[in-house]
């Protein structure tokens, strides 16, 4: 699933490890989310949004593909 987590993380000047520590997961999980290879729970999505000060829409919204 495509998302903007990587962009947001870089804008917030965080490394994968720092973001992982903030939201309480491993760095590998953050890496997989950024690559779109892991589907995070809504809870974790929200944690990431809080950590980078952005909304769910900004990070995870994709327009529906027709």
């Amino acid at each position: 699933m495509r998302n903007n987590v990587k962009m947001a993380r870089i804008q917030s000047d965080l490394t994968q490890q720092q973001l992982a520590d903030k939201v309480g997961v491993t760095r590998q999980t953050i890496s997989l989310i950024e690559k779109g290879k892991y589907n995070p729970t809504l809870k974790l999505c929200l944690e990431i949004c809080y950590a980078v000060n952005q909304s769910l829409d900004q990070l995870f919204w994709n327009d529906q593909e027709e």
Partner: peptide
């Protein structure tokens, strides 16, 4: 203790 949901 890691509470990583992916690992769980």
């Amino acid at each position: 203790i890691i509470k990583d949901e992916r690992l769980q």
